[in-house]
Simulated scan of single mutants.
Amino acid sequence: MSELVCATFDEFEAELIGFDGRYHLTGPERGGWRSRSFCVERVLVQLVSEGAPCTYEGVMLHGWATLFVPRSPPQWYRMLGRPLDERSLIHFAPGQEFLAAVSNPNQWLSLSAPAGLLTDAGNKASVARTNRCLVLDRATIAALTGMLDRLAELDAAGRFPVQPVSGILEARLLALWRFALGQGADRPANRGRPAVSREAVFRKAVSLMNKRAGREVRIDDLCRAAGVSERTLRAVFYDEVGVAPHQYLQIRRLHRIRRALIACSPGKHTVAGIGARHGYWNGSRLAHDYRALFGELPSETLGRRPGP
């Protein structure tokens, strides 16, 4: 078993297996960031603890698919523009971008495998290559999580099954995954407006936030960029990330400041200068907002030596 323990989200972000993306905290860290992983033949299993409410914007590695299973209350999670429930699993397809949001520190597990292993007579290849919300009965999900918990215990104790038993376990996990894809293949990812439309609105608004990182961005600007009313824009942001557009704008600005502080040399740069380049002209306000989100002052981030 491989185990990873990190003090902060940005350390954890760089080490998360199978995903290429970026965390944005939407609330202060209140726990640690941990991951345990082991393989059942060609299936990688991860058990993850995230230490803060957050969003994650990323992409799956090409060639690999991932099945996401929440371990905390499913209602905390928003995936593919919808809240999850007790019967929800999420299939992330290889090379596909996605956005995930969770409202509290949480735990989840995932299975990752080459996408080709998920295609059989009942599933076309295109089914496994599309992000989708899947639905299973609660008993099946409980059986899956129970089996993986037991395998994790055996792996930690150095008693993980070997062939032929490990091959049987791999086949069982893949069969369940294929079954879930078949069950959920025709289910819409969202109710109401199509998922593509909602995703397009969100991405257009975020694109403007990124382009105008150091300048003022108003809600009217985001509405024009996305081609929607303020009411629709607000509804889209709550659907996608669980916060209002102006809150998400501030969160992303603070994260850009944090990345700049980490990358800079304390002797050559100042907090005031970095803040001003990202639209924060009031040093006291920056210190207040930054500490509320990250639990430390920006000067502490700037003065900390980077890890090896």
Rank of each mutant, 00 (worst) to 15 (best):
A7Y: 02
L16F: 11
L16Y: 06
D20F: 10
D20T: 14
Y23E: 05
H24T: 15
L25D: 01
W33S: 07
R42L: 09
L44C: 11
V48I: 15
M60R: 08
S72W: 06
W76D: 07
M79I: 01
R82W: 06
I90V: 07
F92Q: 01
A93H: 00
A101C: 12
Q107N: 14
L111H: 02
N123P: 01
N123F: 03
N131F: 01
A139T: 13
A143K: 06
L151C: 08
L154V: 03
F160S: 10
L176I: 12
W177N: 03
A180T: 01
A180G: 02
D186Y: 09
D186W: 10
F202V: 05
L208D: 06
L208T: 02
N210D: 15
E216S: 14
V217M: 05
R218W: 07
F237V: 01
Y238S: 11
Y238L: 15
V241P: 01
V241S: 04
A244W: 00
R253A: 05
R259Y: 07
S265Q: 13
G267S: 13
H269T: 11
T270N: 06
I274H: 04
A276S: 13
H288W: 10
R291P: 02
A292Q: 14
A292I: 09
A292F: 08
G295H: 03
E300R: 11
T301C: 14
L302E: 02
G307C: 08
